[in-house]
Design a protein around this nucleic acid. Structure first.
Lengths: 136, 136
DNA sequence: TATTGTTATACTCTATAACTATA
DNA sequence: TATAGTTATAGAGTATAACAATA
């Protein structure tokens, strides 16, 4: 569906992100996860000392909104909470969470591959650096 | 805020779009418009025979969600409805809508300029073609 | 039969304020 | 004083189903 707004970078960015995130959402729904939930699983694999607030700051999710998100992951048995002190707790992957993460990697690797292949090869290497310049 | 997900094209796309749309939202709020509303004003400038359903298809907005959107624009006096037949009506800019559109163009032109300038010059020309390949 | 405009509804995502307990 | 975790709530955005009227 062509329209006269396609030449605007901001408009193209919005449409592309909406289309790709709808695609990713559908793929992750097949393994019962939302995008933000999958992001959390991927993020906490690398460290075993991240608090809910810290995860939220890294993923740009308000800590108030982390509560139901982590609640769902905990009910699904994918994460555990380890007390750091009497105020904070580390969010870590459970063994079921580690298995789920393997599924996440299969889904996201395929997704990222399909995404990149849609971009003409002469533009492809410029894609991630451009995007990261917009929010880093 | 660096994190290990930054290298993933899909993740970078989501973060960049969220950041830029938050920026654009704030700029448009200064002239009492939402992003989708501004998009409609820009789109209907070019033609005087577009129906609500047609606008929705071009902007990827469900026609059920066009109802409150156009309702707000109509209450603000920015659009008018012209009967095409007894079923359809054309959505056109009012004179106030045309004035508002001039403000929209000032805001969005500055926004698009600032956005592009954040992208390193060697990547810049590849940006819009890459994005449009993802949803066109 | 297909489409337009509409109503009603629900779910997700995001944002803010406020509270407590602890650092 | 600042931060962590939480509750409650509200505003957006998005999605589906269903309906009457008209093409």
């Amino acid at each position: 569906m062509q329209d006269p707004l396609s030449k605007l970078p901001g408009y193209a960015l919005r449409r592309a992100a909406n289309a790709m995130m709808a695609d990713l959402s559908a793929r992750l729904a097949a393994i019962d996860l939302r995008i933000a939930e999958a992001s959390v699983l991927m993020l906490i694999e690398t460290r075993y000392d991240m608090t809910s607030s810290e995860i939220g700051r890294m993923l740009d999710i308000h800590r108030a909104n982390m509560v139901p998100l982590l609640g769902r992951l905990e009910i699904a048995g994918l994460i555990e909470r380890l007390p750091i002190d009497r105020k904070s707790q580390a969010i870590i992957l459970s063994s079921a969470g580690l298995e789920k993460l393997a599924e996440v990697m299969i889904v996201t690797t395929k997704f990222e591959k399909d995404l990149l292949e849609r971009i003409p090869v002469e533009h492809r290497e410029h894609f991630v650096p451009s995007l990261n310049a917009l929010w880093h």
